[in-house]
Write a protein that binds this DNA or RNA. Structure first.
Lengths: 197, 197, 197, 197
DNA sequence: GATGAATGAGTGTTCATTCAT
DNA sequence: GATGAATGAACACTCATTCAT
């Protein structure tokens, strides 16, 4: 996770937080353990972050932002809707493989959070689904995509992509496998899985 | 939630647990509040359940089992793969609308749980994805479905269905809307969203 | 401190709180020590009191109330202003000898408390000074007291009484000594200490 | 607060300490805030003072000493006991109006401090009461004062004076009011408030 | 001398769990 | 079986103090 080196301790804490929150979940992660993992004292965490909650939110937000920037950059390169969908899916898989399982929870999950977290995370989902919806609508206007309910499809696609990074399977896919999976998956969405009548 | 009436208090506690866990999440839910909601004393919870953790797991497991029985019954009624997929999706939406947002978390989520929970919940996902995979393979054998990677598709479908029950949108869909959405969604999967070439 | 026996533990905690707060002051007193002194678990303190602050305030308030009731009862018995002033002074000395040094701080001090405490304690002083002021004014009307600034005198008298219970001197006065001191002191106030011109 | 200018930072810190301790009390005052108020870094406080506790004690002691010097100078000017008592009272009111509410606590209070502070502050009280006692005894010898218990009266007077600076009333008295109050108050003590028989 | 980033000992408070009634 | 008063382990967070610069 590229970060400025202005605050090396802050970065250590965020990396450690990502790791520990990922492993333990928010409530089971202990500040002391995060501090230890970061190689700093407990008090130092509070020099850089107001609270455990704020630390968590910042990790999520910054992580997501980084992720989104990557994905959006990739999307812009692609001209066709198919290419864009593939880019989204590929980035998702690659980046989330890095963050797993925490990032996936940030990406896909909201329900186990307490109310204050939900608001924060819900916005993230909605933003992503919006981006997807727009891509679809662009595709519709460009005659690449049928005249479908773009928002409904965006959700189906977004959910499906999220499930690919299912933490159940702790295997890391090889790049060529990812390429292969993504191509197949996008084609399922575009061309359907029903036997042509 | 039809349950045996052998232990009315046990049932109250489970209903209350479902409600409170749903609203607050596991860690923010308090045994005292669950007991109060159930109209029993705090100690009574421990007459029927060993621990908060066990209560949670049992609620999830029994809830999921009930859910699965319903879905499987519905699936059996359907002859075509399309009908089966629609049945799965419809049941998901209906039942999850009832459980939201907790049930969704139980259905879709794993990452914020501590390790012991993960094992429990991971099995649930895998079981559902297995059922889906079998339906797809059956469809492939019956020439209803193209010769695709059934497991990959099962995940995409399962994830997409889960996202429909996104707690972001706290609206309750009307039955006819559900019917409409499900039909569209399944058709997207079956026939694709790409403009026919 | 006579208390109802409805909540023996609550009473133990209050007694222990009085003792420990007295010895250590508010900030240096530890809830754990109070609990230990009371012979209960730390959590039990929180069964009966919302917080350390609330425990403190209740101890002060209830202590003062008890004290005031005693004093007021004694005052009513006396017919002359001299008798009333003596009663006030005597009660002060006797009761505060019991509470020392904490009670004195509650009686006389306000300044070292944080703002929330001040409001609470300031009212106590003002109430007592008011009572004194009224006694003086009654005395003026009854021609027992010169036509003086009653409120100014009330403060001087109240402050002087408080200083008699100076915690510096940890000696306990004997009842006959108290009687003697009080008589002298009140006479100083009534007849002055200046050599009669 | 005239101080040597050898250590301007030391003086800033002491002034800031007086202000912050006054407003917040010892335990609620933060070294960081004192440093900020003094316009120096947190570490600088520790260049000049060993600890928060020592800073406090020095502020109190030096403040009191300054105060006492002022009062004693004033007392020496006065020839009569009445004049001396008035001088004490006037100085008290004037100076304490400046320091309030902290100074009053230093002057009058001891009980909320932890044991180490008490010893320090108790000496201050005793010193002042001693000075007062001597003035009274001088007055007795000079036939200005009746043959009373000088130490008892000193306490009553000292306590009464302290109560005039009651922080309850955050009003600042005008010089002419102070003069007026002091004259009245001392006369109450000298000539008594009882209606002449 | 001056600083403030780093620290960790210390504490109020919570809440799952127990057990006497 | 049912209860809820009692408990104490556990943890987020504070802040006086240190020390490398």
């Amino acid at each position: 996770m590229s970060r400025t080196n202005n605050h090396p301790k802050r970065d250590s804490i965020m990396d450690a937080g990502l790791k520990i929150f990922s492993e333990k979940g928010f409530h089971m992660a202990k500040i002391e353990e995060i501090a230890h993992e970061a190689g700093v004292g407990k008090g130092t965490v509070y020099e850089y972050f107001e609270s455990k909650e704020q630390l968590f939110k910042i990790i999520v937000t910054e992580g997501i932002d980084e992720f989104n920037v990557k994905v959006d950059k990739q999307i812009k390169k692609e001209k066709t809707t198919r290419g864009k969908l593939m880019a989204i899916m590929k980035q998702n898989i690659q980046v989330l493989q890095h963050f797993r399982p925490f990032a996936r929870s940030a990406m896909m999950d909201v329900t186990l959070f307490d109310v204050p977290f939900r608001t924060c995370l819900m916005k993230i989902h909605q933003k992503r689904i919006c981006v997807l919806t727009e891509i679809i609508e662009e595709g519709i206007r460009g005659k690449e995509i049928k005249n479908i309910n773009s928002s409904l499809f965006a959700k189906l696609f977004y959910g499906g992509v999220g499930m690919l990074n299912n933490p159940h399977e702790e295997i890391n896919l090889q790049p060529e496998e990812i390429e292969n999976i993504v191509e197949k998956a996008v084609d399922y969405y575009l061309y359907g899985v029903g036997a042509s009548k």
